[in-house]
Amino acid sequence: MDSDLINSETSNFSLPQNVTVLGWRPPLWYHYEECAVAPYAFIFYFIVKVFNLALGFPANTLVMWHIATSKSESSTSDVFIFNLAALDTFFCLMTPIELTNRLYLDYWGIWHLQHFAYGVKDTTPLFLTCICLDRYLAVVHPIVFTNIRDNRMRIGISALVWAMILAYAITESILGVLSVTKVFSSLILSSFFIMVFCNISIIWVLRKSVAGKEVMNPVKKKAFKMVVILLAIIVVNYLPPVALMPFASTYTFVQMHCQISVSVFSIMDLSSTIDPILYISKTDRMSCSCLKRTANKPVNINV
């Protein structure tokens, strides 16, 4: 999780770490003195942070605005997508505060707020899992899905997920990273495999539905492409922590805290921008197709 980047000394409630008897000194931009030999992952980390603020924040805001103002019948997954966008918006907005504290202030109070933000981001796979499960039921078990289309159920599930997220983030903020390490490992592993299973199942059903046919239905073809893209994004964003973090005890300090954890969680953070852009591109294509269908309809002109 991002909070692996935080020095355990931030639990000190006296003075910022960069204030000593010799006066103020700027904190290390690569965080640990040991990382001086391999600081390049932190450059990638800062680039991702700025990228998320510049693109992720407006993209997530646009997603929330689109869902909130959409007058057409929305997807049942939009409830979860809205909540996911809200989480990512908060995380993106933390970037100026984090960079200021990490590169200049190094103040313990702000570190606790950063712990909280990292905890929020660490648990975003919960809403991604809800989205994947919702789509899985819609495609693979349509009869069951028709009986649970009521969005009140999804709002209730979202409230439960929020409670879990806040509990996790507050615990990490107060007690530190080590208090939630096992929970995070279990969360990321289970979420990853559930999401992969759901998307592969959807792909299988969509492919099976056109077996023996030369051309796939345009609607199913779009859905198929979207699921394939989503699966690729899930694998790219979440396979690194799933593959690397279980072996954390075998890495050296420099490998773990200066290279692997920084790079892995920077890649995870990219989902704050990739997810809303994917949603926006999907809605734009739907809007274009609707406009084309409208344009092709004959228009009656009464003189």
Score class of each variant (00 low, 15 high):
residue 187 L to N: 13
residue 246 P to L: 08
residue 212 G to Q: 00
residue 178 L to N: 13
residue 175 L to Q: 10
residue 237 N to L: 15
residue 189 L to V: 14
residue 247 F to G: 09
residue 198 C to N: 13
residue 215 V to Y: 07
residue 179 S to P: 02
residue 220 K to C: 13
residue 225 K to C: 12
residue 221 K to T: 02
residue 219 V to R: 15
residue 242 V to H: 00
residue 237 N to Q: 15
residue 173 S to D: 02
residue 161 V to M: 06
residue 195 M to T: 09
residue 262 V to K: 13
residue 165 I to C: 05
residue 197 F to V: 15
residue 165 I to W: 01
residue 173 S to N: 04
residue 175 L to H: 10
residue 240 P to E: 14
residue 207 R to H: 02
residue 248 A to T: 01
residue 184 F to T: 01
residue 144 V to S: 07
residue 238 Y to M: 05
residue 232 A to K: 06
residue 185 S to V: 03
residue 210 V to G: 07
residue 254 V to L: 03
residue 209 S to K: 02
residue 159 A to W: 09
residue 200 I to A: 12
residue 199 N to R: 14
residue 158 S to K: 03
residue 249 S to P: 04
residue 144 V to Q: 09
residue 246 P to M: 07
residue 205 V to I: 08
residue 254 V to E: 03
residue 159 A to F: 12
residue 179 S to H: 05
residue 219 V to D: 12
residue 206 L to T: 00
residue 196 V to I: 13
residue 154 R to P: 10
residue 136 Y to Q: 14
residue 136 Y to E: 13
residue 144 V to M: 06
residue 244 L to F: 08
residue 175 L to T: 05
residue 151 N to T: 15
residue 148 I to S: 10
residue 253 F to H: 01
residue 175 L to V: 04
residue 181 T to G: 01
residue 245 M to D: 03
residue 165 I to A: 02
residue 164 M to P: 08
residue 172 E to P: 05
residue 245 M to C: 06
residue 140 V to E: 00
residue 228 V to P: 04
residue 227 V to I: 15
residue 137 L to H: 14
residue 180 V to L: 09
residue 185 S to P: 00
residue 211 A to C: 00
residue 218 P to N: 15
residue 201 S to H: 07
